[in-house]
């Protein structure tokens, strides 16, 4: 801790203007990660459910999507979507360019597709591991497939998926650091600017690592709270 504080004693680097630069980076990171996760979840939920479908023309395309995006590095996906698309002749004249010309959207698309693939797999897995008894009980009550999915299978599956999903959220936060390679000034981008300006790798990156740590721990804390709440019915009853 002392070592960390001593970084601030040397105030050549951490001036108001560099701190503001880090702040802008923080805003960009949170913005990017939050949107990616939200849209990713939105895509993954139906895909995860549909992947348990028995007809192959529904589950095979989804399997392929998940296979490709989990099987390749996010950095490669980002390069393809950012630099690759700009090389397609004539794309600058199409309506897609409105989205692709800014660095933010290609990056968002890569992140959304990537997190959607991982989340699909998490949801598929947790639906698949629903205890047989629960499904049989739903059937015994006369529920059809959609009713049992909505009332029994999904609520329990999503509860069980939460720990794995909280990991995905944290991975996404950390993976967002690569957005700095396509000129986005996120937290890591800000750190790289400061690093290049003052030639001080320790100061620039330790500071940014500390911010990532704070973000990660707030996320873990939040997920613990949620988990505690929605899993309350599985805990032993406390007698007062």
């Amino acid at each position: 801790m002392d070592a960390f504080l001593s970084l601030f004693a040397n105030n050549e680097i951490f001036t108001p203007s560099t701190l503001l630069h880090y702040w802008d980076g923080l805003v960009t990171t949170v913005h990017l990660v939050f949107l990616s996760l939200l849209l990713g979840l939105f895509i993954a939920l139906p895909l995860g459910i549909l992947q348990n479908s028995k007809s192959w023309w529904i589950n095979k395309p989804i399997w392929l999507f998940v296979y490709i995006f989990r099987g390749t590095p996010l950095l490669v996906q980002l390069y393809l979507i950012y630099y690759g698309t700009a090389q397609i002749t004539g794309i600058q004249e199409t309506i897609f360019w409105a989205v692709l010309s800014e660095a933010f959207y290609p990056c968002l698309i890569a992140f959304v597709l990537n997190t959607a693939a991982y989340t699909t797999e998490i949801i598929r897995g947790s639906i698949e591991t629903t205890p047989k008894g629960e499904i049989e009980a739903a059937k015994a009550y006369g529920m059809n497939y959609w009713q049992s999915l909505r009332r029994v299978i999904l609520p329990n599956a999503l509860r069980r998926a939460l720990p794995a999903y909280s990991n995905e959220v944290i991975f996404m936060l950390h993976a967002s650091a690569i957005s700095s390679v396509v000129t986005i000034v996120d937290l890591t981008g800000a750190a790289r600017d400061i690093y290049a300006k003052y030639y001080a790798p320790f100061d620039a990156f330790l500071f940014v690592a500390a911010i990532y740590l704070c973000l990660t721990f707030s996320l873990i804390f939040m997920f613990n709270k949620i988990e505690h709440k929605i899993m309350a019915h599985t805990k032993p009853i406390r007698h007062s």
Binding site: Y83, A86, S101, V181
Partner: peptide, 14 residues
């Protein structure tokens, strides 16, 4: 980070 990425984005129109 590199000069070639810089040129790629100029000619790509970014």
């Amino acid at each position: 980070t590199t000069a070639d990425d810089l040129v790629l984005d100029l000619t790509g129109g970014r």
